[in-house]
Write a protein that binds this DNA or RNA. Structure first.
Lengths: 225, 225
DNA sequence: TCATCTTTATATTTTCTTTATAATCTCTTG
DNA sequence: CAAGAGATTATAAAGAAAATATAAAGATGA
């Protein structure tokens, strides 16, 4: 099912959109401030984001910018007529469409469906984890780096899944071993090292920066280049 | 250091409170909607919560109720005079104190300090230690000085952790050696000196004052510049 | 057999310790 | 109170040790 994120601080409008979308058959998450919205966005994969411009905590423009640093998910901006007119450059700054208040819910629905179709419904649904240039696809045991498919073996996938689920968290080799192998650690970090090394080699053929970062004496983590 | 959570959707008021509290020496997290606030609350341990009543997404009353299902953390409600008068029963519903808008920041501070003292400041919290400009993050083995990340090695981290856990306490080199190395002291203070020196160098690139202070003939301690 | 995983062996990198020398402080003494 | 000896600490740089990287050979299992 397609998941849609609504970031809108006005309770009534938020609720209105939410009910319309849920009736239509989407799964909906509501956020009521800029930071809250971005937080949800960062935690899960959404098929589309509805974004108000006037938000407490962080403006819609900022939210859009931060989303665009990470993802190409369709974003539809919603805002008052006068706000949007001065900000038509939003479309250049990463928004895919915009809707002015007051709006007709049917129009909103139509534009959402258009965007979803346009974006090929292929994008971020269910079982994919995204981090910067990397997309881990659970269905195929495959890692995509800038759309280049990198096949991973079972253990490689387990390790990568852990790293990508919690980027920036440092995993000791022991943790990786126990979690990826589901076995007890017996002082064998060498094997882990080999897998890491192999993955680095594969990944770096398709990316600019390095992603698997060694923290000497502690472990490894996923980190932006 | 005490961490305080502000849940207030008005950007200006949020900022005002935040700046006042940070100046006073608290670590502050700002939320701008009800759900966002509760989410933060659920993720970390805070010593105190400042809660507005009129919030998008979830009312202050609801937030308070959900907080009380989980915690006895002191909550100070902030709201407009007329709102609060009709809701004096808040104090019965879990709030520890209330402040009416417009407020004097000094009064807010006084009430916060009162609540913290009352509550014994006991709350065992997460994995960051803060001292002045410095934040030691256990997750990343990293020291932040004014938000600049300073990577520490394993031993450096151990030493810094000790110093930051008990600022102003003087550690002899022997103590540092035995605690950081988990080994017995064999008359070698030179190594400790080198590590201290290296850390000072790294830190001073990002801070104004010196933090690691030598007490001649006794040892070293963490001390504000 | 084939692909994957593990082990082995060696190279590389980073960190830790030692060494050597300079700078700083304390305390004595005139 | 100033000067200087002796002790303590600071720092740079070299050497030793530890941790990790990688290639390639061997083991395992469908």
């Amino acid at each position: 099912m397609e998941k849609i994120l609504i970031i809108e601080d006005n309770d009534e409008i938020n609720k209105l959109l939410r009910e319309m979308l849920e009736t239509t058959g989407y799964e909906v998450k509501s956020a009521f401030s800029g930071p809250e919205g971005f937080l949800y966005f960062d935690q899960e994969n959404y098929s589309l984001v509805l974004l108000d411009l006037m938000l407490p905590g962080m403006s819609g423009e900022e939210v859009l910018k931060k989303i665009r640093e990470k993802s190409t998910v369709p974003v539809i901006v919603i805002s008052a007529k006068n706000e949007i007119e001065s900000k038509l450059d939003l479309l250049e700054n990463g928004a895919d469409d915009y809707i002015t208040k007051p709006f007709d819910v049917r129009e909103v629905r139509a534009r959402i469906e258009l965007q979803l179709k346009k974006h090929g419904s292929a994008a971020g649904n269910g079982n994919k984890i995204v981090f910067e240039e990397l997309v881990l696809d659970k269905e195929n045991n495959t890692l995509f780096a800038n759309d280049a498919a990198i096949p991973l073996t079972k253990i490689e996938f387990s390790i990568m899944e852990l790293l990508m689920k919690h980027p920036n968290k440092i995993y000791s080799k022991q943790e990786l071993y126990e979690l990826a192998w589901e076995d007890h650690y017996i002082g064998e970090d060498k094997t882990v090292n080999v897998h890491i090394s192999n993955m680095r080699k594969k990944i770096s053929e398709h990316t600019k920066g390095e992603y698997i970062d060694t923290v000497w004496g502690i472990g490894v983590r996923l980190k932006k280049a």
